[in-house]
């Protein structure tokens, strides 16, 4: 089974699943944040903080697991700055988010000074034994490191929590109408702060995946804009968890495919291949927002609006 003289679809799907993990995790975290009515544009900054904190934790402890936890904690700590500024001091969310990205990029560079050129401990594949040897399916499903499976589990968990639990209902209520939620006695600020921290932790996991697995090393600016793509994917997914998975795989897939097509010598001009992931993202965004009433219906009504109990 070969396409374009040498691209094995099974291998391609397997590598797109790996390529999509960072944006998938960051996007699902941001989805929860936005569902709670907060627009945090600092995803890129939180991702890169996760990348360096995860890297440092993994190198110092020798354990990739500790690394991922460290990455999640580091980015969640950064997101607390955003939470304090926007939820307590009621700063503008867009401006604060952008500042968070710039701050995260600088701080990560500072922390990473002594970690350039070091190799982190290896994150191994999950041993599935004979399952991994099944042709095609084994390659696609059973030859990954555990973060790939964890990322899908996170999507399923977020979907289930938002849809079926009381917690999910409260988060959505806060995001749709914070005044009504407040009138019902829910602590709007506290819930939003927790959502922001969850978003930070997920972005941190995504960042740590880049520095520990995908590009196992630390260099300044390692996330290279992945956080912005994660933000676009949330809109692309119209705030639905499973569509985040589709969006991330689509983007990851096209990125991997365009490099594979080049390596396989496809006679398509490189410029078109390079721009294709972004073109498709724009195209889908246009299609999704063509039906204005539905798109508007999906966006949390209180998105980006600050809440103060006195109003």
């Amino acid at each position: 089974m070969e396409l374009f003289g040498g691209i094995n679809p099974a291998v391609l799907i397997a590598s797109l699943m790996v390529a999509a993990v960072p944006i998938l995790l960051a996007a699902i975290g941001e989805l929860v944040v936005e569902k709670a009515g907060v627009l945090n544009l600092g995803v890129e900054g939180m991702m890169i903080m996760g990348a360096i904190c995860g890297f440092v934790a993994a190198v110092e402890s020798g354990s990739p697991l500790v690394g991922f936890i460290g990455g999640a904690l580091g980015a969640a700590a950064l997101s607390l700055i955003f939470a304090f500024l926007t939820q307590v001091l009621l700063a503008n969310q867009v401006a604060t988010g952008l500042a968070l990205t710039l701050f995260g990029l600088g701080l990560s560079s500072l922390i990473g000074q002594g970690y350039v050129g070091i190799k982190p401990p290896l994150t191994g594949e999950v041993p599935f034994g004979p399952l991994a040897d099944i042709p095609v399916i084994g390659t696609i499903l059973f030859q990954h490191d555990w973060m790939v499976y964890a990322s899908i589990a996170v999507i399923a968990a977020v979907w289930a929590v938002l849809r079926y639990t009381r917690t999910g209902l409260i988060i959505r209520a806060v995001g749709e109408s914070h005044d009504a939620a407040h009138a019902l006695g829910y602590k709007v600020i506290r819930i939003r702060v927790l959502a922001i921290m969850f978003g930070g932790a997920m972005a941190g996991l995504g960042g740590a995946y880049i520095s520990l697995v995908r590009v196992p090393q630390w260099t300044d600016g390692i996330t290279a804009g992945a956080g912005w793509i994660a933000l676009a994917i949330v809109v692309f997914a119209s705030w639905k968890p499973w569509r985040v998975l589709v969006g991330a795989y689509l983007f990851g897939g096209i990125t991997v495919l365009q490099l594979n097509l080049q390596a396989a010598g496809a006679r398509i001009p490189v410029e078109y291949l390079s721009m294709s992931p972004y073109l498709i993202t724009i195209l889908v965004l246009v299609i999704m927002s063509a039906d204005k009433s539905r798109a508007a219906l999906n966006a949390p009504a209180a998105l980006g609006r600050n809440f103060h109990a006195s109003r």
Binding site: G6, I7, N8, V11, L12, S15, A19, P22, I210, R214, V215, Q217, T219, G221, I222, T223, A224, A226, T255, V256, L259, N260, Q262, A263, A264, G265, V270, S274
Partner: peptide
């Protein structure tokens, strides 16, 4: 020789993906 144009001087994730694509092609 297979040439992959990354259109960047420095983007670790993209460079890693390019290397991966080449290795998958038997390079």
């Amino acid at each position: 020789i297979s040439v992959v144009w990354a259109y960047t001087w420095f983007d670790p994730a993209k460079e890693a993906d390019a290397a991966k694509a080449l290795i998958e092609q038997g390079v």
